[in-house]
């Protein structure tokens, strides 16, 4: 049975069916991501001074991923234009580039960015113990400069068993530069290039810690939002890549020989979805990495 309105427009809507379908779907996606972004903004506005983690993400890697996604949006449009001009060879080249961009984005995210967070540790110090750890927090220096105080000591946890063993009374942390040299004016702002953990070890007594964990979703509202939104976005990127892979299988090329306009319309719909996913990242990047 022939499915109607895959190429020609319906008289009542003036559009072919899949285009209406994708815009309805994208409208629901706007509500989904809009809700998550709103939740993030309100959580952040509600956080007290010094309580919201900042400068913990790798900005150069995030910038590279942003450039990759922008490039993939260009290649997907070029793939569609090649189909409209009935140039199958160019279509294959541009679609392959789009898939490669999507896969590269996911590989960077899942094999580098996320695992880097899982290896990091942070301990929020109780209010009455902040003075005891002044050498790592440098709050007097920040107060003089009118900056928000630090309450968290971060780095690489040496004794990971301390997280679960109540008999171990302290955490041993190889400090991040910001806590190893907290009065250095260069540490007053986040760094564009992430600095590696230092050799300086700090011992923090558990009774002085309000809350401590690895950089997992349960670490803070910040990381819960970060992993939820980037995870959901990553799932969308994966979905888009799978659809593009389907556009490159022999069945799609048979469709091209039979009805090239139908394949062009399919690529357009998938391309609209891909543009939306990339547009979401345009908002994710400054919100999480820069601000």
């Amino acid at each position: 049975m022939e499915i109607p309105y895959t190429v020609s427009a319906r008289r009542d809507t003036g559009l072919w069916n899949a285009k209406i379908g994708i815009w309805l779907f994208l409208a629901s996606e706007v509500m989904l991501f809009g809700g998550l972004f709103s939740a993030y903004i309100f959580l952040r506005l509600d956080a007290g001074p010094g309580e919201w983690p900042h400068g913990l993400l790798n900005v150069p890697v995030g910038t590279m991923n942003t450039a990759i996604l922008i490039a993939s949006s260009v290649t997907v449009v070029l793939a569609w234009a090649a189909l409209k001009m009935r140039d199958l060879t160019r279509y294959k080249i541009y679609m392959t580039l789009t898939i490669l961009c999507g896969v590269t984005f996911l590989v960077v995210k899942l094999s580098y960015e996320w695992p880097q967070k899982f290896e990091h540790f942070g301990a929020f110090i109780k209010e009455d113990a902040l003075g005891k750890y002044e050498q790592y927090l440098g709050n007097r220096h920040l107060l003089e400069k009118g900056l928000a105080p630090r309450k968290e000591i971060t780095g690489h946890l040496h004794n990971k068993e301390a997280l679960n063993d109540p008999n171990i009374k302290e955490y041993e942390i190889a400090l991040d530069p910001v806590n190893a040299d907290p009065t250095n004016p260069a540490m007053d702002r986040p760094h564009f290039w992430p600095l590696p953990a230092t050799d300086k070890i700090a011992t923090i007594e558990k009774e002085d810690v309000q809350y401590a964990n690895m950089f997992l979703p349960k670490h803070s509202a910040y990381f819960a939002s970060y992993f939820t939104i980037t995870g959901l976005h990553g799932a969308h990127v994966l979905g888009g890549v799978l659809v593009f892979c389907y556009m490159m299988v022999p069945a799609s090329f048979r469709l091209y020989r039979h009805n090239p306009e139908h394949l062009a319309n399919r690529v357009e719909v998938a391309g609209l979805f891909w543009h939306f996913v990339d547009l979401v990242w345009i908002f994710v990047f400054p919100l999480f990495y820069l601000l």
Binding site: V77, W80, E268, H275, L279, I282
Partner: peptide, 13 residues
């Protein structure tokens, strides 16, 4: 269409 959306995307980029 994808052409219009692409231009919107380039504006945001």
């Amino acid at each position: 269409s994808i052409k219009g959306f692409h231009i919107v995307f380039i504006v945001f980029s």
